[in-house]
Design a protein around this nucleic acid. Structure first.
Length: 808
RNA sequence: GGGCGGUUAGCUCAGCUGGGAGAGCGUCUGCCUUACACGCAGAGGGUCGCAGGUUCGAGCCCUGCACCGCCCACCA
């Protein structure tokens, strides 16, 4: 096959993606007998498309997986999708609306069937996009959280928790989203600043001895007030505790109570208590045994016991009416504008309505304890480590998890009720009520929070709860690589479920990658329309360049997207391509054969040893940005600019030994680059004569153990080149150094602009003065470490030698 | 309100346990040298956010401040 001067990734990449998969290179066999290395991909939403976060995380995981595969591990990168309850249901509901119908019209069974149809037609496109990126997922093992086997795992988990007594049903305050028509967990609430009005209302004391003024941003909830609370040590109100006040509009007589949770500094220091519509009030109400009336319904409209004219109003309309009433009765003290933080549904953006509702809850305190231990002891390490502390802190303050969702798409709760209200919890539909034997059973209509099933991902994908060969071979896994925003939602819950159900942590390292922002530093988002499509980047720059660029942007801190990094990857690919052409053109079908004889061959061997050690250290520490740096410079600066240039005479002369050595060296470079740039390296590898199998499954290179001191010896040539190129003067070099210098620098044909010898002398004199000054400082010589002082002396000597060489 | 991270060249970012400020892009200069002009060689460009402190020596350690960002939180 011809190698053209310009490397074109289009075509090459798709060809190898197919070839690898067809050859089964990504498939992990549980019976391999080799040590396993396992990463489970964070399952993308089945309705989703590849975005920058997926592309970055995919590249990062693939780099790790490919490296370990080459190192001989039985590497499994587990693919799959999440059913994404709310998101998927919303998509299909939108379809139905377009058709002029609704889920309520067609009924639950038909709706769920529609979701499956929709998914068969439009869902699950990301795996195809991961293929475009070159991701070596074991595609044959694709799993879906709604697979029959996976559903069984979810049911088992729920029943397990129920039997442990950690899963219970309770009437508590929840976060209701009226657009999604379901409750959501605390973690799915996003707090945004909102401009509201703070209304100060006077509540007259029942005995007519005065009044208490409260402040509220939600006057409509006055209709559900059951108390007024003040801080126990607030002297202003001490005499009033125990008395009663009359709630405006409804005239209900309620007590004045004392509670620590009231902030005396805020507003008037008196807080109206509405347990039905506020989380804090709910807790205070429970502790004081207060009723929990509701006046706002699930549809966001006024409901319940209301004065005339309120039923059916929106909250805002009701608020207006309440304020008008207060004004009319001279109980409105004032209204002032007020900006505060308000919970919103992170999916729909709708303001959360706190409502009291009968729901299923999971108490995770017991499960959190061993997960905390795993993190704090360092058995599970986060990268960067700071996230481990945050994760552990969250677990230490863990709160009950509302796991039921009022949706149709998802895992329906394994809970049945008989007519008497007895609860039966079972993995499969029971014949009769566990308590009374009644055969008239109704299944709870709710489904589970999507994250409930995600919590089982590292082992439900391997066949748990069955004892499968996969589970035995691939659990526990090794690494979880994830976005920062789902550490609590997902990572912590996998840790808890893994330890609880399988007795061991699901992975020992958690990699938290950076967020790639747009060029202006804003978060990329669909709604803002500032997202960049990774598939377009792949089309434009090639998958290898895209991968390189993404890794370059993957430092621990968030980074602004810039095409410069992809361009760098593309240039690196093109450079590698061309140096390979140079070597292959001279090879004449000769086989790679390691036989370092010339000093530049010993040198490049040592350089590759060093670079490989640095690359391995970077990979082991999940420092991908550093990895790209090492690979770029060893390829450009060492391999291309110096080694290839130095041996050109041998290559042109078709020196068989030197060419074999060059092929062997190129082979090693390709291996080092493969985890980052799999396609081009595999393509070049395929042009190598007498290669073994495909590069993707070729063994990671061994270190050769270069000659001692060779790197420093070679460095003298590089310094001489710099001096020559600046000043046109050749400094002192030994014979072999001079030969290499001549081959690379070509002083015979070099043109140096003007006479810059004077400038170079001045530069060296400056350096010498600096070093002399430092060494003349007695306190430096006395206090600095001996090697630092010694290094300074060596530098001084070198500068003096160079100056001497230039001056004559 | 609490916590965490950031502030380094025009841009995007590196900078390990404190020991002469770096890379890529962009800019300027010179080269079509038989791998690559998507290339090669060179140059210019920085008070390392600000103010103190520790040290022979600080981008790095300590204290305070400013701005930017993220996370958590029950202030109505």
């Amino acid at each position: 096959m011809e190698m053209e001067p310009l490397y074109k990734p289009q075509g090459v990449e798709e060809r190898w993606q197919r070839a690898w998969e067809d050859a089964g290179d990504f498939h992990a066999d549980p019976d391999s007998g080799r040590e396993s290395y396992v990463i489970a991909v964070p399952p993308p939403n089945v309705t989703g498309a590849l975005h920058m976060g997926h592309a970055l995380n995919g590249t990062l995981q693939d780099t790790l997986v490919r490296w370990h595969r080459m190192r001989g591990f039985n590497a499994l990168w587990q693919p799959g999708y999440d059913h994404a309850g709310i998101a998927t249901q919303a998509v299909v509901e939108r379809e139905l609306r377009k058709e002029g119908t609704s889920r309520l019209d067609i009924g639950r069974e038909a709706f769920v069937e529609r979701v499956w149809e929709w998914l068969r037609e439009y869902g699950g496109v990301i795996m195809g996009q991961f293929r475009r990126l070159g991701c070596s997922l074991d595609y044959k093992r694709e799993r879906f959280t709604m697979d029959d086997a996976y559903v069984r795992a979810v049911m088992r988990f729920f029943v397990h928790l129920y039997e442990r007594g950690w899963m219970y049903r309770d009437n508590r305050i929840i976060n209701w989203c009226k657009d999604c028509e379901t409750s959501i967990s605390d973690l799915e609430v996003e707090y945004l600043d909102v401009d509201d009005a703070l209304t100060y209302a006077r509540y007259p004391l029942e005995d007519g001895s005065g009044s208490i003024t409260i402040a509220t941003v939600r006057p409509a909830t006055i209709l559900a007030d059951v108390a007024v609370a003040v801080h126990p040590s607030d002297e202003r109100y001490a005499a009033l505790v125990g008395k009663s006040v009359v709630v405006p509009v409804i005239g209900r007589v309620v007590p004045v109570i004392a509670d620590e949770r009231v902030e005396p500094e805020f507003g008037t220091g008196a807080l109206k208590i509405t347990p039905g519509h506020d989380p804090t009030d709910f807790e205070i109400g429970r502790d004081h045994g207060l009723p929990e009336p509701a006046v706002i319904g699930f549809d966001g409209r006024m409901t319940g016991e209301l004065p005339d004219g309120y039923a059916g109003l929106t909250e805002d309309e009701a608020a207006e009416r309440v304020v008008a009433w207060l004004k009319e009765h001279d109980q409105l003290e004032k209204r002032e504008s007020y900006r505060h933080s308000v919970g919103h549904c992170e999916r729909s953006g709708t303001r959360i309505q706190p409502l009291v509702s009968l729901q299923w809850w999971c108490d995770m305190k017991a499960m959190a304890a061993p997960a905390i231990e795993a993190i704090d002891s360092g058995r599970v390490r986060f990268h960067p480590a700071v996230h481990g502390r945050v994760a552990s802190d969250w677990l230490k303050a863990i709160r009950p998890w509302n796991v039921s969702r009022q949706l149709w798409w998802g895992h329906q709760l394994p809970i049945w009720y008989c007519a008497d209200g007895h609860v039966t919890c079972a993995e499969t539909p029971p014949d009769a009520c566990a308590e009374c034997g009644s055969r008239e059973l109704t299944r709870d209509p709710d489904v589970l929070d999507t994250w409930f099933s995600s919590a089982l991902w590292p082992f439900a994908t391997l066949g748990w709860p069955d004892d499968t060969p996969e589970l035995r071979a691939f659990y526990p896994g090794d690494v979880n690589s994830t976005a920062r925003e789902i550490i609590f939602l997902w990572v912590n819950r996998m840790l808890m479920s893994g330890i609880e159900l399988l007795g061991d942590i699901p992975f020992h390292d958690v990699v938290i990658h950076s967020v790639i922002q747009d060029a202006q530093g804003r978060r990329m988002s669909k709604s803002a329309g500032n997202g960049i499509d990774p598939v377009e980047l792949i089309d434009q720059h090639g998958a290898d360049a895209t991968r390189y660029g993404l890794l370059k942007m993957s430092s621990t801190q968030d980074v602004r997207f810039s095409t410069g990094h992809l361009e760098e990857g593309r240039r690196l690919a093109n450079k590698l391509w061309n140096v390979s052409r140079l070597i292959l053109q001279s090879a004449d079908g000769a086989a790679p054969a390691f036989s370092a004889e010339l000093p530049e061959e010993h040198w490049i061997t040592a350089r590759l040893d060093t670079a490989q050690a640095q690359a391995e250290a970077a990979l082991a520490a999940y420092e991908f940005s550093h990895l790209t740096d090492v690979l770029y410079h060893v390829t450009f600066d060492d391999f291309c600019d110096w080694y290839a240039e130095a041996i050109k005479p041998q290559l042109y002369a078709k020196d068989a030994r030197a060419t074999g050595m060059a092929l062997a060296t190129l082979e090693r470079l390709l291996k080092l680059l493969h985890p980052v740039m799999p396609h081009i390296t595999e393509e070049i590898w395929s042009h190598l004569p007498a290669r073994g199998t495909r590069l993707v499954v070729a063994p990671w290179p061994e270190s050769h153990g270069g000659e001692d001191g060779i790197e420093r010896w070679f460095e003298e040539i590089r310094t001489a080149a710099e001096v020559f190129r600046r000043a046109g003067v050749v400094t002192t070099l030994d014979g072999e150094q001079r030969r290499i210098f001549d081959a690379v620098v070509r002083p015979d044909r070099a043109k140096v602009d003007g006479d810059r010898r004077g400038e170079e002398i001045a530069r060296l004199e400056g350096e010498i003065a600096r070093a002399e000054k430092m060494l003349a400082n007695e306190r430096f010589v006395a206090n600095a470490p001996a090697d630092v002082v010694e290094a300074e002396r060596a530098k001084l000597e070198r500068y003096r030698r160079e100056l001497d060489a230039i001056s004559h």
